[in-house]
Amino acid sequence: MSTVPIHAEDAAVGAVTFTDQTPLGTKLARTASGRVGRIVVWILALLWTVPTFGLLVSSFRPEKAIKTTGWWNAFGHLGDMTTKNYSQVLSTKVGGIPFSQYFWNSVKITIPAVVIPIVIAALAAYAFSWMHFKGRDWLFVVVVGLMVVPIQMCLIPLLKLFNLSWLHIGDNGFVKIWIAHAIFAMPLTIFLLKNFIGALPREVMEAARVDGASHLTIFAKLVLPLSVPALASIGIFQFLWVWSDLLVGKVFGGNAQNQPITKAVVDVVGSRGNDWQLLTAGAFIMMIVPLVVFISLQRYFVRGLLAGSVKG
C-alpha cells in the first residue's frame, strides 16, 4: 500500500478492499493448515483415488495385458485399450444367467426398495409430528431404538415368514427383497423424516386445518411437496445402500433370476477369481450407477449424511 493513490476514488476502493479482505477472519481465523497439512491432504487424496483408478484403467486393457503387466504400464500402450472386457462380461453366464441380466435385476430391486420405505416412513413421520395420539413420543422412541438391531438378527425368521406358503411370495425374490429393504430402512428413514417434517412451520399446518384440509390432504398437498429436499437426500442414501447391498439380496433373492448384481460379482470372484478382465469390467458395471448418482447428487447425499449422523 505504498503507492500514492492517483484518484480519491481509487484510494477509497483500496481502503475498502483492505478492510474487507484482511480482517481477523482470514488472517487469524481457524487453524491455518500450512504447507505440510496441504501436502498431507493431497497425498491422501491421491492414495484414495489410485486403487479405483487402477481398476478402471485395467478394465479397458486386453486380457493378456491385465494378467501379465501392471495397469500402470497401460499408458505406454494407449492404443491397445479395448471395451472387449465389457462385452465379454456382459455375456458371461453367472448361475446360468447372463451377467447383464443382473444389472437389470439390481435396477428392479432398487427403485421399489427406495420408493416404498420412503412413502411409508413419510406417512409415519407425519403422524409422529402432527397427529395427536396417546403414547406417541414413546412409540417414536421405540421405532428409532430399533436402529440398533443388526440386520443379521432378522434374516432367518423373516425368511421363514416369507416362505409361508399362504403368503404366496415364497418364489418371488424381488418382492421379498423389496419388503426386506423397506423394513430395514424403516427406523432411520422415519427418524430422518420426522426431524424434517416435524420442523415444518406449525402455523402452516394449522392454517391448512382451518382451511378444511384433512390429514391426508395436508400430507399430500403440503408435507410431501415441502419435504422434497429431505426426500431427495434420503432417497439417494437409500439408493446407494440398496444398490450396494449384498446380504439382503443374497438371503432373500432365492434363485439366480432375482439376485442383484453384487451377488453376481461376488460369484465371479468365487469361481473365476483370476479372470481379472471379467472382474474389473464387471465391478465397473456394478459401480457405474452409484458413482454417477453419487457424483451428480453429492450435495443432497451429504445433507442426508449430516442429518443422519446427528442420531444417537
Binding site: E203, E206, A208, V210, D211, K221, L226
Partner: peptide, 27 residues
Amino acid sequence: PQQRDIAMVFQSYALYPNMTVGDNIAF
C-alpha cells in the same frame, strides 16, 4: 377447525410455500 367455518390469519401468515398466491387463496 374445519367444521367450525372460521378463517384465521396467523402471525407468521402461514402461507403455503409450495403454492402460488392464487392457489393459496383458492385452497
